[in-house]
Design a protein around this nucleic acid. Sequence first.
DNA 1: TGTTAGTTATTAACTAATCAGTAAGGTAAA
DNA 2: TTTACCTTACTGATTAGTTAATAACTAACA
Lengths: 198, 198
Amino acid sequence: MKNKRVANDTYQEIINSTLSAMAEDGIANLTTKSISKRADVSTASIHYFFATKDNLIYNSFVFVIKSIRLDMLTARKGQADPIKRIKGAMETHFSAMHLSDEAAYIWPQLWVHAGCDERTAKLVRVFGARMISNFTYDLCEAGMGRREARLTAIELRALVVGLWLEKKVTKYAAPQEYREVLDSVFSRLVEQTKGNRK
Amino acid sequence: MKNKRVANDTYQEIINSTLSAMAEDGIANLTTKSISKRADVSTASIHYFFATKDNLIYNSFVFVIKSIRLDMLTARKGQADPIKRIKGAMETHFSAMHLSDEAAYIWPQLWVHAGCDERTAKLVRVFGARMISNFTYDLCEAGMGRREARLTAIELRALVVGLWLEKKVTKYAAPQEYREVLDSVFSRLVEQTKGNRK
DNA sequence: TGTTAGTTATTAACTAATCAGTAAGGTAAA
DNA sequence: TTTACCTTACTGATTAGTTAATAACTAACA
C-alpha cells in the first residue's frame, strides 16, 4: 500500500497539516508527530521533504503569503476605480478565500515567528511593504498628494491588521460592527478624494 | 549563599525572565530551563512558585496586562479633554512605560496563546473591551452620537493594535511615519468633533 | 515484451537530547 | 523549631532527527 500518493500531494498535505495543527494548538505545541498524524504520513516523511521542522514552518508561511497575495492580485485585476481596488484588497484579507478558516489563525503565529526568525521577518516585511505601496499608488490615482497618500496607506494597512486581529482573535465587538467600521472608513475615503480625481 | 532573595523578588524575577525569554526566542522555544537560567534560579523554584509552566505563562500575561492598564489609567487621570484622554491612552500603548522594550514583543504571543487557551483569551477580551468602552465614553463626551462613537472607538482600537504591530514587529515604514499617522488621525478627530462639544 | 537497474517515496525502529515535573533534603530567618 | 524558600538529583515522557530497508514506479535495454 505504499506510494499511494504522488510526491507533490504529500508535500502539500504536510504543509496543510502544519497550518491546521498550528492554528488549533499554537506554534508552541507544534510537533512533527502531531503534523504526521494529521497528514497521515510518518515523521520521517516530513524530514524527507523538508529536512528540518524549522524549514517546514518557514515553507508553510511562504505558502500562506503566496495564497493571499494571489487572492489580492485577482481582486485588483479589472477594477478601474482605485478606491474600490483598495476596498477589494482589504476585503480579501478578511475573507482569505483560498485558505481555510483555520488557516486564518496563522497570521499571529507568523508575526510571532517573525519576531525571532529573520527569514520569516523578511517575508512579512516584503508582503506588507508591497501592500502599502499598492495602496499609495491607488490613493495618488484617486487624487491624493504623495505624502498624504503614503500616510493614509500606512493607516489603512494598520487598520486591516488591527480589525482582522480583533475580529478573528479577540472578538469583543459583534461581527457586523467590524464591517460597519470598514464601510464608514471607505465612505470617508470617498468623501476625502471627491472632486480631485485625475 | 542560599535564600539570598525574598520570595517576592524571585517570583517577579521568574515572570520577568519568562517575558524576556518569550520575547527573544518565541513561545515555541520557551522552556523551564531557559527561564531558570535567566532568572538565576533552579527549575524546581519555578514549579515551587507556579506549579506548572502553563500557569507561569498565564501569570506572566496577567502581569503584562495589569501593567499596561495601570499605565493607561495614570495617563487618563487629570486629563479633562476627552480627545486628549484617548490620545494619552493610545500613546501609552506605544511607549509601555513600565515594561522593557523586550516585553513589548509579548503582545503577539498573547494573541497567539489566546487562540488556544480560553483563560488567556478572556484576559485579552476583557482588556480590549474596557479600552473600547473608555474610548466610546470619551468620544460621546466630545460630542459624538452613541453609535458613531462606538464605531470610531473600535476603529481607534484596531488602529492602535495595527500600528503598534507594524512598528514593533514588521516595521516597513520609518518610525516617525507611525507618529505622523497617529497625529493626522487625531487632527481629524478634533476636526470631526469641533463645534459640538457638550 | 519482459527483465533489470536505478530513482523516488515511504516506513518502522531507533537514538541522543531535552522536556516538564517530582522527591527529598538543606538553609536561613522568624 | 517550625516554616518558607530553594536546591540537587532524579524520572519518565517526549522531542527532532537518522538509518536501513523496502515498495512502487521509470526508463533503458535485450
